[in-house]
């Protein structure tokens, strides 16, 4: 089972929830943890894995052979990202705009374009006690996070048992790549106007992806009831509420593990897991009921 943990708003507690759920469930089942927030991965700060492998993630980049180019401009025409331009016999490439689709090389009638791999990030794997740990890290200054996310997310297939995917914040391409084809998605939010605004965006995304989902309200008691009202109106289940507690924040800031330091939180997480299993399994139809 692939369980994605996402949120619209950043800083709602995705990683905290993902890490602590993984720690607790790994006591009784095989668990893999995929940190897909490749622009700022941080789950390793809490799980403290031993990294065993590190490999480069690369994208093909077009290289133009000026001797063969006849300046027809087909490459520039096809490029959806404006990453290759043709001015007469001059062809310019912009690697940081290139998404590596290969269209230019395919269409070049002179076969003047070849592709060479260009490193854009790394993928690391290891173990945090019994938890299989995989994360990606996009190179600094590199604007292309999604291919690195996809490389990490693909590892979900190689893993038995529960796969917990810690998604990046927001609702853009890297998040879609993380959540897509998951069995269930937890949307973590907080009871504030910002939390609600971004939750609505995340709900729209989950519905579009046809991934069943439920909501976790973190820092409950801090704001207002509008998130709960919204969920009731939309028929979205609220699976867990974690009360705001300054000690939890302090534990997080130290890189601590909440389920170890505050064992009373384990109960809520166990119930959360049962609810997820009911939503996903059971009669199967239950999970789809809050899909439109």
């Amino acid at each position: 089972m692939i369980l994605a943990i996402a949120s619209g708003k950043g800083g709602t507690g995705k990683t905290t929830l993902a890490v602590n759920l993984a720690l607790l469930l790994a006591e009784t089942m095989p668990v893999a943890f995929l940190d897909c927030d490749v622009e700022e991965p941080n789950a390793h700060l809490f799980l403290k894995p031993t990294i065993e492998t590190c490999e480069q993630v690369a994208l093909p980049e077009p290289i133009v052979d000026k001797a063969r180019c006849n300046g027809c401009g087909k490459c520039a025409e096809i490029c959806a990202f404006n990453a290759i331009l043709a001015f007469g016999d001059q062809v310019l490439t912009f690697p940081e705009l290139c998404h590596g689709c290969g269209g230019c090389a395919l269409l070049c009638p002179e076969e003047a374009i070849t592709e060479e791999p260009r490193g854009i990030g790394v993928l690391e794997t290891g173990w945090a006690d019994r938890i299989r740990f995989i994360h990606g890290r996009v190179d600094i200054g590199m604007p292309l996070a999604t291919p690195v996310v996809k490389a990490v997310r693909k590892r979900a297939k190689d893993t038995d048992g529960l796969v917990i995917v810690d998604a990046p914040p927001g609702t853009s391409c890297p998040v879609v790549a993380s959540v897509k084809d998951s069995d269930y998605c937890l949307l973590v939010t907080e009871p504030t106007p910002f939390g609600l605004n971004d939750l609505e965006l995340a709900v729209g995304m989950a519905r579009e992806l046809k991934v069943p989902f439920g909501v976790v309200i973190n820092r409950a008691g801090l704001g207002d009831d509008k998130v709960a009202d919204y969920c009731a109106r939309e028929g979205i289940p609220i699976l867990l509420e974690v009360p705001f507690d300054r000690r939890y924040a302090a534990c997080y800031a130290r890189g601590g593990q909440l389920v170890r330091e505050f064992p009373k939180l384990q109960d809520g997480l166990r119930k959360l897991w049962l609810r997820i299993r009911m939503e996903v399994g059971g009669n199967g139809a239950g999970a789809a009921c809050h899909q439109r």
């Binding site: 520039a76 990202f81 404006n82 990453a83 331009l85 043709a86 001015f87 310019l92 912009f94 705009l97 604007p143």
Partner: peptide
């Protein structure tokens, strides 16, 4: 409305 490469697209257009 380009997601990226608006500047390069504009230059190509003017050329």
């Amino acid at each position: 409305m380009a997601s990226g490469g608006a500047g390069t697209q504009g230059a190509q257009f003017l050329a």
